[in-house]
Amino acid sequence: TEVDLHLGDITIKLKDVSEEIVKRAKELFKNGWSAEFVKKWIEEAVK
């Protein structure tokens, strides 16, 4: 499945990412993480 994760003005296309990771990524962004950091976190999380 593909998900578009909207973080501010940046959209990250996610492939084969669990709902849990998407939820967590949104929380991290809301908590002040930059979109770049969230993207890196996701990449690490799906390895």
Results as ranks from 00 to 15, higher is better:
26 K>S: 09
5 L>H: 02
35 A>M: 05
19 E>K: 06
28 L>E: 01
23 K>Q: 13
46 V>D: 03
14 L>C: 06
34 S>H: 05
37 F>R: 15
2 E>N: 11
3 V>C: 09
44 E>M: 11
35 A>N: 03
45 A>C: 12
31 N>S: 13
11 T>A: 06
46 V>W: 07
2 E>Q: 09
4 D>R: 07
47 K>I: 11
34 S>V: 04
4 D>K: 07
18 S>M: 06
6 H>M: 11
45 A>V: 11
43 E>Y: 14
42 I>P: 00
37 F>A: 14
15 K>G: 07
16 D>K: 05
42 I>W: 01
12 I>M: 08
33 W>Y: 14
15 K>W: 14
4 D>S: 12
22 V>S: 03
1 T>E: 13
44 E>I: 10
39 K>R: 15
9 D>M: 11
39 K>H: 07
38 V>Y: 01
15 K>D: 06
43 E>M: 15
45 A>W: 11
4 D>W: 10
44 E>S: 07
26 K>T: 11
17 V>M: 04
37 F>G: 09
39 K>Y: 12
2 E>H: 10
22 V>A: 06
24 R>A: 12
21 I>C: 04
8 G>D: 05
16 D>F: 09
28 L>T: 00
36 E>S: 10
5 L>D: 02
16 D>Y: 09
33 W>A: 13
5 L>F: 06
10 I>P: 02
42 I>S: 00
35 A>P: 05
27 E>P: 00
32 G>C: 05
19 E>I: 08
9 D>Q: 08
39 K>G: 06
40 K>V: 08
21 I>S: 01
13 K>A: 10
26 K>Q: 13
31 N>M: 15
42 I>G: 00
27 E>Q: 14
26 K>D: 03
42 I>M: 05
5 L>M: 06
17 V>L: 06
29 F>N: 01
9 D>H: 14
29 F>R: 02
18 S>W: 07
27 E>R: 07
19 E>H: 10
11 T>I: 14
31 N>D: 09
17 V>T: 04
35 A>I: 14
8 G>K: 04
33 W>R: 12
20 E>S: 10
16 D>H: 10
3 V>K: 07
33 W>M: 12
41 W>R: 00
38 V>H: 00
35 A>V: 13
3 V>P: 05
1 T>P: 10
16 D>S: 06
15 K>I: 13
2 E>T: 14
43 E>T: 09
36 E>P: 05
19 E>M: 11
24 R>C: 11
18 S>F: 06
44 E>D: 13
28 L>D: 00
13 K>I: 11
35 A>W: 15
4 D>T: 14
25 A>G: 03
29 F>Y: 14
30 K>F: 10
18 S>N: 12
13 K>S: 11
10 I>C: 08
7 L>Y: 04
21 I>D: 02
47 K>G: 11
12 I>A: 03
31 N>K: 12
30 K>C: 06
34 S>Y: 03
10 I>L: 11
28 L>S: 01
22 V>L: 14
24 R>F: 15
16 D>R: 06
5 L>S: 02
5 L>I: 09
21 I>H: 03
15 K>P: 05
30 K>A: 15
18 S>G: 09
28 L>I: 03
30 K>L: 14
20 E>P: 04
24 R>N: 05
15 K>N: 10
34 S>D: 08
2 E>D: 12
25 A>W: 02
35 A>F: 10
44 E>Y: 15
19 E>Y: 10
21 I>P: 00
44 E>P: 00
39 K>P: 00
30 K>Q: 14
40 K>I: 12
22 V>Y: 14
9 D>C: 09
24 R>G: 08
36 E>V: 08
9 D>T: 10
38 V>P: 00
12 I>G: 03
27 E>I: 11
24 R>E: 08
1 T>S: 12
40 K>W: 15
5 L>K: 02
7 L>E: 02
27 E>Y: 13
43 E>K: 08
2 E>C: 11
11 T>R: 06
35 A>H: 05
19 E>G: 08
26 K>N: 08
1 T>A: 10
22 V>H: 04
36 E>C: 15
39 K>M: 15
1 T>K: 13
20 E>Q: 09
35 A>S: 07
38 V>F: 02
15 K>Y: 15
33 W>G: 04
35 A>K: 04
25 A>D: 00
47 K>V: 11
14 L>K: 01
23 K>M: 15
35 A>T: 06
14 L>A: 03
16 D>T: 04
45 A>M: 15
22 V>R: 06
17 V>D: 01
28 L>V: 01
13 K>V: 12
40 K>M: 11
3 V>D: 08
44 E>G: 06
6 H>I: 15
10 I>F: 12
30 K>M: 14
11 T>F: 07
28 L>R: 01
11 T>D: 04
25 A>F: 03
47 K>D: 07
21 I>Q: 03
15 K>S: 10
30 K>H: 11
28 L>F: 07
30 K>S: 11
3 V>T: 10
21 I>G: 00
38 V>L: 04
42 I>Y: 02
5 L>Q: 02
46 V>P: 02
2 E>F: 14
20 E>V: 09
32 G>H: 03
47 K>S: 12
19 E>N: 09
25 A>N: 00
11 T>C: 08
26 K>A: 13
13 K>R: 12
4 D>M: 12
12 I>N: 03
12 I>Y: 03
10 I>K: 05
14 L>T: 03
32 G>P: 01
35 A>Y: 09
2 E>A: 09
40 K>T: 11
45 A>I: 11
21 I>F: 06
5 L>A: 02
27 E>T: 08
17 V>C: 05
35 A>E: 04
17 V>P: 04
8 G>P: 02
17 V>A: 05
2 E>K: 06
25 A>K: 00
6 H>R: 11
47 K>M: 14
1 T>G: 13
8 G>T: 03
10 I>G: 03
34 S>G: 07
46 V>Q: 09
28 L>H: 04
3 V>I: 14
8 G>S: 03
11 T>L: 09
27 E>D: 08
7 L>V: 04
12 I>E: 03
15 K>Q: 09
47 K>T: 11
13 K>Q: 09
25 A>S: 02
28 L>C: 03
29 F>C: 02
15 K>E: 07
46 V>K: 07
12 I>V: 08
12 I>R: 02
40 K>S: 08
14 L>I: 09
12 I>F: 04
39 K>E: 06
33 W>C: 08
32 G>F: 03
25 A>L: 04
38 V>E: 00
42 I>E: 00
26 K>M: 15
19 E>V: 10
13 K>M: 12
4 D>C: 13
40 K>C: 09
37 F>Q: 14
27 E>N: 06
23 K>Y: 15
7 L>Q: 01
21 I>T: 04
